[in-house]
Amino acid sequence: MEPVADLSLYVRLISGMILGLAVGKLLSGLAKFVQHPQEYRMNIVHALWIFFLFGAISVFWWEEAQTFGKVQWSYPLYLYQILYCSSYLFMTAVLLPDEIKSNDGAENHYEYFVARRYWFYGALLISHSLDMANLVIKEGFAELPMTPMFFGINGLIFVLLALGITVPKRWAQISVAAIFALLTIFSMVLE
């Protein structure tokens, strides 16, 4: 079997389709709050997470555009890329479900989110871990910024994820979402 002329283009297309689905799900989920304001009430937690996911996807895709050519693509890396992109789609689907009425008594998006926060934060943990590995794959281990700021931000992220998973209180959920939104703004500015 002959190798494909531009394998990185193929991987970009597949990645773009998955991320496009995630952005589409974000926008259609956001539109439900406008289309059906009585049934779907926007809350600050969802607004912050929607902003975070949209920003994180845009920053991720921007960084990928700059580093795709540096990778010698193989089937395991291709599967890795699909998994990484799929983590964004999964988080979006958990955050903005098609239906919020469920057997656990959730009556609104916030209650639904808190009841399923383990899934969302677990996917975010996986996505962040994949992001750190992605940096090594695309840039090389020697390019990792082993600085106090790097360790501080990553330590903060893991503490926030643990807080979000373990503390269902509204203040904790708002705080975690707000800090992640701020981190996204910070990463957008750095790009």
Score class of each variant (00 low, 15 high):
residue 52 F to L: 04
residue 40 Y to E: 13
residue 42 M to D: 04
residue 14 I to T: 11
residue 28 S to L: 07
residue 76 P to H: 15
residue 13 L to T: 06
residue 71 V to P: 05
residue 29 G to H: 00
residue 50 I to Q: 02
residue 41 R to A: 13
residue 45 V to L: 10
residue 30 L to M: 09
residue 78 Y to W: 13
residue 36 H to M: 10
residue 16 G to S: 09
residue 3 P to I: 01
residue 36 H to K: 11
residue 76 P to T: 13
residue 71 V to Q: 10
residue 12 R to V: 01
residue 69 G to M: 03
residue 77 L to V: 14
residue 54 F to S: 12
residue 7 L to A: 15
residue 56 A to M: 05
residue 23 V to D: 00
residue 75 Y to D: 15
residue 42 M to F: 09
residue 39 E to W: 07
residue 24 G to E: 06
residue 38 Q to M: 05
residue 42 M to C: 07
residue 49 W to D: 03
residue 34 V to Q: 05
residue 64 E to C: 07
residue 61 W to T: 14
residue 60 F to I: 02
residue 32 K to R: 15
residue 48 L to G: 03
residue 11 V to N: 04
residue 44 I to T: 13
residue 33 F to M: 09
residue 48 L to P: 00
residue 68 F to V: 04
residue 11 V to F: 11
residue 57 I to F: 06
residue 12 R to Q: 11
residue 38 Q to R: 14
residue 58 S to L: 15
residue 20 G to N: 04
residue 42 M to A: 15
residue 58 S to E: 04
residue 32 K to H: 09
residue 71 V to W: 09
residue 78 Y to A: 14
residue 60 F to Q: 09
residue 5 A to P: 03
residue 13 L to C: 06
residue 43 N to P: 02
residue 49 W to I: 03
residue 26 L to N: 00
residue 51 F to K: 04
residue 63 E to F: 06
residue 72 Q to W: 10
residue 52 F to R: 01
residue 23 V to K: 00
residue 32 K to C: 05
residue 19 L to T: 03
residue 72 Q to F: 15
residue 10 Y to L: 15
residue 70 K to M: 10
residue 29 G to F: 01
residue 48 L to H: 03
residue 75 Y to L: 13
residue 73 W to D: 08
residue 60 F to N: 12
residue 69 G to C: 02
residue 5 A to S: 09
residue 46 H to T: 08
residue 43 N to M: 06
residue 70 K to N: 15
